[in-house]
Amino acid sequence: MDYEEISKALIKFRDERHWQKYHTLPALARAMSIEAAEVNEHFLWKDSQPDKELFKNTEDIESLKMEIADTLTYAYYMCEKLGVDPNDIVYEKLQINKKTALEILKLVRKYDYERGCSTSNKRSSV
């Protein structure tokens, strides 16, 4: 399904239950935050484990997927309220991040040059 189909299905689900009045931006933001915390809960006390070893059984993977879906659902509801396409705003933010990362790299290289250091020996590229 593409975003438009998913968005329509979510809105229909919400409207059939008459939940529109509860879906304010602050309420959706809080709900998204709670769901994101539930995603994080899957990784509690597992910092030293490699990613490949974190989820060895399908039940754990499915549980994590459902928490990610819950988080995305609230993000989609917020996008609908704001009248924006999430793919568009993610792409827009990616372009900003690319520009920012490049500017930071230039500053680091300038700083290292002024100190007489070579960035090629000290840092990997961004």
Rank of each mutant, 00 (worst) to 15 (best):
A69S: 13
L82H: 08
T73G: 03
E16V: 04
K46E: 09
N40P: 00
I96W: 10
L82I: 09
R30D: 05
Y22G: 07
L25F: 04
K106S: 10
A101R: 13
E4D: 13
E59C: 06
T100K: 15
G83I: 05
D85V: 03
E5M: 11
N121W: 06
E38F: 02
D88S: 12
S124P: 01
W19K: 13
A36G: 05
D88A: 13
Y74G: 00
L64K: 02
E35N: 03
M1Y: 09
N57V: 09
E114S: 06
E35F: 03
N121Q: 13
E16W: 06
K46L: 10
V108F: 03
A101Q: 12
H18C: 10
Y76H: 08
E5P: 00
T58C: 07
I11D: 02
L105D: 04
S33M: 07
P26S: 07
R123S: 07
S33K: 06
T100N: 12
S125M: 12
N121H: 12
E16Y: 08
V108Q: 03
L10E: 02
Q95K: 15
K81A: 14
H42L: 00
S63C: 10
L107K: 14
W19R: 11
E38W: 00
D60G: 14
E80P: 01
K110F: 05
C117D: 04
C79G: 07
P26T: 04
L102A: 12
R17F: 10
G116F: 03
H23L: 06
I68T: 02
R109P: 00
L94H: 14
H18V: 06
Q95E: 15
D15P: 00
T71K: 03
I68V: 15
A101L: 15
D88P: 00
K8W: 05
N97Q: 13
D85Y: 03
I6M: 06
M1V: 10
E53C: 08
Q20G: 05
L94R: 14
Y111E: 10
E38I: 02
E53H: 14
K106I: 08
Y3H: 09
L82S: 05
C117T: 01
P50Q: 10
N87F: 07
E5Q: 15
E114W: 05
A29K: 09
L28I: 04
S124W: 07
E35P: 01
V126G: 10
A36M: 08
Y76D: 03
L94Q: 14
D112F: 04
G116C: 08
S124L: 14
M66P: 02
A75N: 03
K46N: 09
V126I: 14
